[in-house]
């Protein structure tokens, strides 16, 4: 058994998930590649969204993959960091907006 939960080499094996369920695996990978095709959004924009979400999901595999993808597309590190702040702003916003719930509850319970 490996000693750590994450191994960078596992990313290369992602495709193997289909081996234990070919049909659903195929459907997933078809869907996945379709999503990233050039559409109303450019493939470049999608790559930046993926990078931001990879961070909010804190998925090391996705961070590895979409950092490299961004470099391949000529995306600069400044653009990448800006995308991350969008993710981070939504994350912190999502935390703080729940403060309203807290405030509602306090207001209801306190005399």
């Amino acid at each position: 058994m490996q000693k750590t939960y994450y191994d960078p080499a596992d990313l290369k094996k992602f495709g193997k998930i289909s081996e234990w369920n070919q049909e659903l695996g195929d459907k997933f990978f078809d869907y996945y590649s379709k999503v990233f095709e050039e559409g109303h959004l450019t493939a470049r924009e999608k790559s930046l969204i993926a990078l931001a979400v990879a961070h909010t999901e804190q998925c090391p595999y996705c961070i590895d993959a979409y950092t490299k993808d961004g470099l391949q597309r000529g995306i600069t590190k400044e653009e990448m960091m800006e995308a991350l702040h969008v993710g981070a702003a939504i994350k912190s916003g999502a935390t703080l907006v729940h403060g309203v719930q807290m405030m509602n509850k306090v207001n209801k319970l306190e005399m």
């Binding site: 450019t42 493939a43 470049r44 490299k68 470099l71 391949q72 597309r73 000529g74």
Partner: peptide, 20 residues
């Protein structure tokens, strides 16, 4: 001519040309 500035492959030539 564009070649990547690091250990990664070049992306799609047409898309890069558009950006350049």
């Amino acid at each position: 001519v564009y070649n990547p500035s690091g250990a990664f492959l070049p992306g799609d030539q047409t898309a890069l040309e558009k950006d350049f």
